[in-house]
């Protein structure tokens, strides 16, 4: 297993956000996390990336326990890419500088090397002409694709995507999703929290339904989304269908 979360517990005050949660992700697997707001999807991703400490349990990446307090979190994060709902590009830097920041400062690449790598990626996603632009000058879809590239240039072992299309206008969602589809084709291991059930169905190898900080149900998309066992999952999906999102 590339990623194993065992009995992970996370609380904010009295509120239990993750409750003895277990999740295993194999290499090259794409896992979609679904569930209502507040079910713990984003918190789980932030815990895996060590942006938030956990209150109990363990998380292993590549067989190494990353929740061991002796582990340097900076080194763990270098192996995990995280993409945020609101892009979080650095507004004072050009697109190119956003992408080359970590390769040059963290991974010890030369400026030229990093620039070439960044340009290759920008070329691939059709944004080469925006290299010198600032994030404010880009559409939401373009910003999110830059944010994904920014995570990918570091060749992460695992890519975490936190509702990356939730802030986008409907006509811009497609360009981001097609990029994720390409990454799957290349074998990138991904865990994505999403509200796009249709997309989860297409791209995920496995869908995991979170409810109140636990994994309530998981399995192939067709089964979890088409014929769920748990009443809570049925309820959730019924609401999604009602909203016209599936």
């Amino acid at each position: 297993m590339l990623l194993s979360c065992t009995d992970v517990r996370k609380t904010f005050g009295d509120h239990v956000v993750l409750d003895n949660l277990g999740l295993e992700v194999a290499e090259h697997e794409v896992v979609a996390l679904i569930g209502a707001s507040g079910s713990g999807k984003s918190t789980l991703l932030r815990c895996v990336n060590l942006l938030t400490g956990i209150d109990d349990g363990t998380i292993h990446l590549d067989g190494e326990e990353i929740t061991d307090p002796k582990v340097n979190p900076d080194l763990v994060r270098q192996k995990i890419g995280l993409v945020f709902q609101s892009y979080n590009l650095f507004p004072h830097m050009t697109v190119l500088d956003n992408i080359t920041l970590a390769p040059t400062r963290v991974h010890g690449k030369s400026a030229t090397e990093a620039r070439e790598l960044a340009m290759q990626w920008l070329d691939r996603v059709g944004l080469a002409d925006k290299a010198k632009a600032f994030p404010d000058g880009l559409s939401g879809g373009q910003q999110q694709r830059v944010a994904i590239v920014r995570a990918l240039v570091n060749s992460p072992r695992l890519l975490l995507l936190d509702e990356v299309t939730s802030a986008l206008d409907p006509e811009l969602v497609g360009e981001v999703l097609s990029m994720i589809r390409d990454l799957k084709a290349e074998g990138m291991t991904m865990v994505l929290a999403t509200h796009e059930m249709g997309f989860a169905k297409q791209v995920a190898d496995r869908v995991v339904f979170l409810d109140a900080g636990r994994v309530l149900e998981q399995g192939p998309p067709a089964q979890v989304l088409g014929d769920p066992v748990e009443p809570r999952t049925r309820q959730f999906l019924a609401r999604i269908i009602e909203a016209g999102r599936l």
């Binding site: 932030r46 990336n49 942006l51 900076d74 080194l75 994060r77 270098q78 995990i80 890419g81 995280l82 945020f84 609101s86 979080n88 590009l89 650095f90 920041l101 970590a102 400062r105 963290v106 991974h107 920014r150 995570a151 570091n154």
Partner: peptide
């Protein structure tokens, strides 16, 4: 969220402070 983004890229607190 800017610090979170910088840290998620593997930058240390110092680097996040200095560059972001």
């Amino acid at each position: 969220s800017q610090i979170a983004a910088a840290r998620s890229l593997g930058l240390s607190y110092r680097q996040a402070m200095r560059h972001v």
